[in-house]
Design a binder for these strands. Sequence first.
DNA 1: CTGAAAGCGCTTACAG
DNA 2: CTGAAAGCGCTTACAG
Lengths: 330, 330
Amino acid sequence: MVTIKDIAKIAGVSPSTVSRSLNDYPNISKKTKEKIKKIAEDLGFEFNEAARNLNRKKTNTIGVIIPQFFDDMRGEIFFANLLGKLIREAQMEGYHVRIEYEIEKKYIRKMIQSRSVDGLLLMNPFISKEDVEFILEKNFPYIFLHYIPENFMNTSKINYVRTNQKKGGYLATKYLIEKGHRKILTLSGLSINYEFKERTEGYRKALKEAGIGEEYILDIDVTFESAKKAIKKNYKLLKELDAIFAQTDLMALGAIEALEEMSLNIPEDVSVIGFDNIQIGTYFKPRLTTIEQPLDKLAKIGIKNIIKLMKDDVKVRKFIEPKLVIRQSA
Amino acid sequence: MVTIKDIAKIAGVSPSTVSRSLNDYPNISKKTKEKIKKIAEDLGFEFNEAARNLNRKKTNTIGVIIPQFFDDMRGEIFFANLLGKLIREAQMEGYHVRIEYEIEKKYIRKMIQSRSVDGLLLMNPFISKEDVEFILEKNFPYIFLHYIPENFMNTSKINYVRTNQKKGGYLATKYLIEKGHRKILTLSGLSINYEFKERTEGYRKALKEAGIGEEYILDIDVTFESAKKAIKKNYKLLKELDAIFAQTDLMALGAIEALEEMSLNIPEDVSVIGFDNIQIGTYFKPRLTTIEQPLDKLAKIGIKNIIKLMKDDVKVRKFIEPKLVIRQSA
DNA sequence: CTGAAAGCGCTTACAG
DNA sequence: CTGAAAGCGCTTACAG
């Protein structure tokens, strides 16, 4: 492997000069700088990353902690290549990304103490209190991405970048109301995660604004199958309804399948709106109307801000606005 | 940050002894070893990664090069969380993974020369000849994962882990034949990538084995839309056919939508089989019969073998066997 | 069983 | 504009 020492020897200068030249320091004569760059180029020299990191006390890499359920069904489909987007954004800013599951209790601690990363994007809702407190106490640069652990929801001093879930629920419900629907069922997963509570809050807010008194909330598993089952089971209730707000697209698809098997037409008999905007919705018939959580923005804003935070110790509290995507199902 | 020097001072020993203790060298008295471990634990000590990497001349990380089209539609859907699987497998083996797009011409070279990674999993079919030759010449540990660049297809000295595409095409076609079909159309993407050529070879092999003379091959874009269009356009041809082997699931779904719009029933009038086994196929009606490319195996075998190769300089040439998944569409 | 010393490949304050 | 020297935090051959 070629080092700056090798180059120094060939060029007849000191290693310091080589370092300065290759790093484009100002106080180096054009002549030697060019000579040295030429030699480095010819030899295919690249700085040894470990040596640099050790000396500079930074790694130019952003740690990303992903949740265990990331490769479950829901994760797989919803997070469609979020990792790819994070990698791309980081690379565009000149950083690397170190994506990991938190495989042991003190894993995050370890990443920090070993100085493996310069900052942390935390995407795990189940991150332990101890871990978070450690990060806070060390004043280590971090941002909660997409999720906030529930016990920190109400703390004001937390950094985050996440979708405005309540707004999403509100948009979905308001759209249905504007279409003339009054009896609107929402399929939620209240017991699973607070984001469903927030979506439901949005649902309520829209109903209230429209002066609609009746709520229909079903708290179920957030899967295709359980949505399908729930719709079939509540056959009677359904007769009175005119629209469904499913709080994930997969639930929406399950609901639609149930409705079709009951010979109901969508959206003529019942309108259905989903949440997430997974790509599948594009291929299903009827094409799914839904609320988009813009993952590319999540990635871009997350990366940009953790980098800013690594430099300046600013506060980062950003909401990403969800978007109504109108297609055929509602 | 706490270092072994700090621990040494507290324990009243030399840094060497601390290093040896924490690394569990045999020739250290139980007593001091335990004492030192206790102190390290109390202080929350972790080895500085950069220092270790510099000294040991390795990083414990595997580089993964992903293709630019990774976040295109096809990539997004087909590669469903392949990255997550790679990360998980690597972590289970005690390694990190550095996933990157090849953003500039000599990026791979740079990763090698800067000693950022110990080995490379190459997943880009468009990797340049120069890059590959550089890797080969440096004798740097690498494996082609899933793809092999076309100009190296016929070289015998290449390391790879990939799905047996020909076998996949064969299995799909053979299944259709066994179901009694004779006039089988295949929707391929011959001009896009050699993997489609291989699937088509498999198709041909199965036909030949069954003594079927007629081939129906459509070379189109491998998208939902173009498959749909192709089917509609070839309406006449279709009247004679009894089955379709679409070489991606998305094409299968496009074909199905076209057939349904033409009031044909699946599988009664026309059987359709796909390729990939993307998750969407599970939710569509009719549920998609398809050929699975087992991505979890790809990840696991890829990671396991690059690690082996980093240690031993063995040859790695592994095919992953695709699997027939029978559901409803054929 | 333990320590002193050299070295991994850089960067940079200091001196000239 | 350039060099010698110290230091980043480890590991390990050598000596005892």
